[in-house]
Each structure stands twice: as C-alpha cells, then as structure tokens.
C-alpha cells in the first residue's frame, strides 16, 4: 500500500499523562482522512507530532516513504492549520502570506495573490486580519498552509465556529485542493456529518488510542441507514415499537429514537405510533452512519 504517512506506536506523554498512546496511523496518498475523537482525545497532539511541532515520547513516523526526524526535509512538505490559524492580526492577508513566503524563499511576485485567489480572499486589500470574519481567517489559515506547495495538509477543526455558508465554502476548497492539486488532507472535526461528506478514510481516536481505521466504503457497509423518530414520549414509543416486533432501536435522548430495521416501513411505524396514542413529532430515514458508528464504538452520546 502506498502510504504518504505511517506512524508506528506513536506516543506522547506530558508528565504522567499519556496524551497519545501507541497510535499506528495509515494515510494513503490522495486521501481525505477524517480524524474523529472527543474533546481531549488527543487529535491536536497527534497532528502536532505529525507536523514536527511536538516531539513524540515514543514511536516513530514515516512521511513520504522515509523516516521523519529533526534533520529531515519531510516536515517541510506539510502545511498545517492546527487549532486556529496563526496570524498577525494587525497585518493584512497579503502581509501575513509574505512573511511565510519570504521564510520559505519563494520569490515569485504573484505567489501571495495566487494563494489568496485559491481561498477567495483576493480582494481583501490592506484590510487588517483582525477585521476579517472567522471564516475569512480560517481561509487565510488554509492559504498559509498552502504556501510552499505541500503534499500533505493537516487541518485541525477547520470548520469550527463557521456559519453554514462558511462550512460549505470550506468543504468546496478542501475538495478542490484534493482533486485538482492532489493534496492529501488529514482533517479533524467535531461536525461528523460534514466530515462524512468529504472524507475518504477515517481514524477513530479515543482517550489517546486509535480504536479503528476504516474507509468510507467500509463505514457504509458497517453502519447502514436508520429511521430517526422524534417523539414527545420515548418510553411509550419504545413500547409501541416492541409491540410491533421492532427490537433493533436505540434511545438517543428523551425525544429521539433510532431504528435500525424495517427501514422502508416508516409509514407503518408512524401509523402504529398514532394508534398507540404516542405523540409523533417527526420521522425520517437518515444516514448518519459516521456519528452512529463513532458513538457505538466509543460508548455513548457524550460530546464528540
């Protein structure tokens, strides 16, 4: 298999706390790899180690087919946007890019403009970055990560805090970078529904350990669709489901039940609820297999 990144039992300890515990990650060239985990699962720490910003306590990583270390050039082929963009807020977008382009020795006069064009910030002029919206700052962060033509981009929560339009724009940018420039992307996000729209592969991180790696196809095969039922009386709804021979369901919260069988039978289920005098607020077939799969794997609907 042609892996662009492979970690071998990578670990990071802070004092007695093991933030990352023997993680062996495999990222294929050209993939959009979704890194999933709850708050504090170790996603940012793992990405920092991959970017060469933090030193592993144990283990090793292979980047672009060779061992990555302090002396190697491998890290220079990685663009990063970790936690939030590192920007000089009193400078303009172009000035921020110029600082990095100069440091990398890139002398093409239009390099900054081309990068701004790529992320849709060409017309920001001399406006200082502090006056940018969060979405614009995130896009500038992507432009900075793109400086130096990286082969691998590490994006930690790039859609955090963005409005729906900003999320859609970010998704389009990432898809274009992956498709047109062939950049492999590792992306972590809390918004699993969004992640499921772009990712080709997934790694599920829980309490510093990598629980599982799977492709999008494998996820579809494993997860499957479900019916989401919204009701004002979940216990009564459960009784009705069981009376109708439905056993594969899960109560998500006091208003929501997910049913994993008889997916084409939603009309009859709605009728049964009405007959049983159970208030029905909504019923629809959904495919949130990534979130469902993650919750099942990590044990419950805690914060992702």
């Amino acid at each position: 298999m042609d892996y662009i990144l492979e970690t071998r039992a990578l670990s990071k300890r802070y004092g007695k706390t093991r933030a990352i515990d023997t993680v062996s990650l495999h990222v294929k060239k050209g993939a959009i790899y979704g890194l999933i985990g709850r708050n504090g699962a170790g996603k940012s720490t793992l990405l920092k180690m991959i970017a060469g910003l933090a030193r592993p306590t144990e283990g090793s990583l292979q980047l672009f087919g060779s061992e990555a270390g302090d002396k190697g050039l491998a890290f220079s082929r990685i663009g990063v946007l970790i936690e939030h963009p590192g920007l000089y807020y009193n400078m303009s977008a172009r000035e921020n890019l110029t600082v990095k382009l100069m440091a990398l020795g890139i002398r093409e006069k239009d390099a900054a403009d081309r990068l701004l064009e790529t992320v849709g910030l060409r017309d920001t002029g001399k406006k200082s970055v502090k006056k940018f919206s969060m979405g614009m700052q995130q896009r500038l962060g992507i432009a900075l990560a793109l400086a130096g033509n990286p082969d691998l981009m590490l994006l930690d929560e790039p859609i955090n805090g963005l409005d729906p339009q900003g999320i859609a724009e970010m998704r389009q940018i990432l898809e274009r970078l992956n498709r047109e420039y062939g950049i492999t992307i590792i992306i972590s996000s809390h918004i699993l529904e969004e992640l499921a729209k772009v990712a080709t592969d997934y790694g599920i991180l829980h309490e510093g350990r990598l629980l599982e790696e799977l492709t999008h196809q494998e996820l579809l095969e494993k997860g499957g669709e479900h019916i989401e039922l919204k009701t004002g009386d979940a216990p009564a709804a459960c009784t009705v489901l069981e009376e109708n021979g439905i056993a594969q369901y899960k109560v998500i919260d006091k208003d929501t039940i997910r049913i994993f069988e008889r997916l084409t039978d939603s009309g009859n289920i709605a009728m049964a609820m009405a007959n049983g005098h159970v208030p029905l607020l909504g019923i629809q077939v959904k495919n949130e297999s990534l979130e469902n799969y993650f919750l099942n794997l990590t044990g419950g609907a805690a914060h992702v």
Partner: peptide
C-alpha cells in the same frame, strides 16, 4: 514573543530543520 502569542510560528517551524 509575537510569534508565540499569535502562534504564527507553527506556520514556519515545520519548514526549518532543527528548531
């Protein structure tokens, strides 16, 4: 401190061999 406080350093650090 400017590089550290605004975290700009993470844009550059990976490109330098030997921090």
């Amino acid at each position: 401190s400017a590089d550290f406080s605004c975290r700009y350093i993470i844009n550059i650090a990976g490109h330098v061999q030997g921090k």
